[in-house]
Amino acid sequence: MVMSKPAATRPSEAEIWEALSQVPDPEMPFVNLVEMGIVRELGWQGGRLQVTITPTFAACPAYEVMQAEILAALAALGLAGAEVLVSHNPPWTSEWISAEARQKLKDAGLAPPPRHQGDLLGVLMDPVPCPRCGSEQTSLRNSFGTTPCRMIYTCNDCKEPFEMFKPL
């Protein structure tokens, strides 16, 4: 049986969001699951916390690790027995990645996904600035990369290869 805490001693919603903001993305530890737009909603069901997440790419291998790390972070707050719900409604989009997270991606050498407002094919025609030197003289090397969410470019100016987080 799961013992639920009386409401009075529960951590506040702000405290829970703060704890979840400390959970790193397993494959990109320089960003967290909240600023990536993966953690969507908090709710209570019969004294149990329910966290709704929207996974990014369907085949993301980090998905099960994310769930385990969310539960561990909540357990550390005293919220044992919390539940992670998975929702694809609406499906995750790279538009949900916050401005701070975009900057962190760039600082880590990963070009952030361009804002597309639904026009994915259109935005893929635009130049992708090199996250290192800022040059727009870059070439697509591969629409697929080291994880389902990345594609590979080369900068024609600084000559460095780099990855871009795919717009989705």
Binding site: A58, A59, C60, P61, H88, N142, F144, G145, P148, I152
Partner: peptide, 20 residues
């Protein structure tokens, strides 16, 4: 090499979709 990576990703995506 690029196509090795591409086909591995295509495979992973399709298997991920089957799971859904």
């Amino acid at each position: 090499l690029e196509e090795d990576i591409a086909f591995a990703n295509l495979a992973l995506d399709e298997i991920g979709h089957s799971r859904l």
